[in-house]
């Protein structure tokens, strides 16, 4: 009898635990889904409106799905919309951005890795000061350097060109990429470098054969970070570029500002998605390494 009562009690207890567990899980999921919808709403508005004729938007159906599906706004934004004074669409500027962002990211990542390698494995007198200054460089507000940088670019003869923009982003990017790689390499066993030295490997051989092959996670973090920052930059793009070297962000602004007569919202939406796509793509491809790499650099650093 006593045993039976105990069993019943235990059973009741167990059921209760499961019930509250399921209940709280239900609440959590509902909240998560709501937040998810909330965050996805802007994307929905952009995608939906970029696929309808202008008349549908003007009729007031911002949230509605398109009645007549059209890809004309995308085509127009890409190749024929009025950007500034010329009706070229965003294509040349997209190309500018690619030409700017790829070398800037690649060079700043490699230089950051090299700096991190030197600052951790080939320490020299005053290396902490050098690192401190590089770190300081990360936190100088962009606005402060605009005028000195313009003067520098002028002196170097690359003002208003894509190489000029690459240079600016490189200067800003090296601070961050150095920070990432230095912290990562600090964990890298120094005995490996010493073993390679005894084996006869020189400075660059050790870097290329020993350090770089183990730098995957932090390189991904660095690339994502640099790519997103440089691609999304507007201030430097607006300040240091000419008509023919403007990056995507500046061109998008010009596209939106320079409509003659009616505002072609559908074209603007399409253009905005185009401007956002590359960073999205980078996140999707490399994103799963991102958190892992961030952790690797930060747990013991």
């Amino acid at each position: 009898m006593a045993t039976a009562a105990a069993t019943t009690n235990a059973g009741a207890g167990a059921t209760q635990v499961i019930r509250t567990g399921a209940g709280s899980r239900y609440v959590i999921y509902t909240l998560l889904i709501l937040f998810c919808l909330y965050y996805l709403l802007p994307l929905y508005v952009m995608v939906v409106n970029s696929l309808k004729p202008l008349s549908e938007i003007q009729a007031g159906g911002m949230m509605a799905l398109p009645d007549a599906l059209t890809f004309a706004p995308w085509a127009s934004a890409w190749s024929s919309a009025q950007v500034g004074v010329e009706a070229t669409g965003l294509r040349p500027y997209f190309l500018n951005s690619i030409l700017m962002v790829v070398p800037a990211v690649a060079i700043s990542t490699v230089l950051g890795a090299l700096n991190g390698y030197v600052l951790t494995k080939w320490r020299f007198r005053g290396d902490t000061i050098v690192f401190g200054l590089l770190l300081f460089g990360c936190f100088i507000p962009f606005q402060m350097v605009l005028i000195p940088m313009a003067r520098m670019l002028g002196l170097m003869g690359i003002a208003g060109t894509v190489p000029g923009l690459i240079f600016v982003h490189l200067v800003y990017g090296i601070g961050f990429s150095t920070l990432y790689f230095r912290n990562y390499y600090q964990q890298f066993p120094t005995e490996l470098v010493r073993a390679a030295m005894i084996d006869g490997a020189g400075f660059f051989t050790i870097f290329r054969r020993i350090m770089l092959p183990s730098s995957g996670p932090i390189a991904v973090v660095c690339v994502i970070w640099q790519f997103t920052n440089i691609w999304n930059d507007f201030l430097f793009g607006a300040s240091f570029s000419d008509f023919d070297s403007q990056p995507m962000t500046v061109a998008l602004n010009n596209l939106v500002q320079s409509s003659t007569g009616v505002k072609e919202y559908n074209v603007h939406f399409a253009g905005a998605i185009m401007a956002a796509l590359p960073t999205l793509l980078v996140y999707i491809v490399a994103g799963r390494f991102f958190v892992r790499g961030l952790m690797a650099g930060s747990v013991k650093g």
Partner: peptide
């Protein structure tokens, strides 16, 4: 590298 020595490390230091 030019001393013609080889070293075995505590952590083994295998690449």
């Amino acid at each position: 590298a030019e001393r013609n020595i080889a070293m075995v490390f505590q952590s083994y230091a295998l690449y």
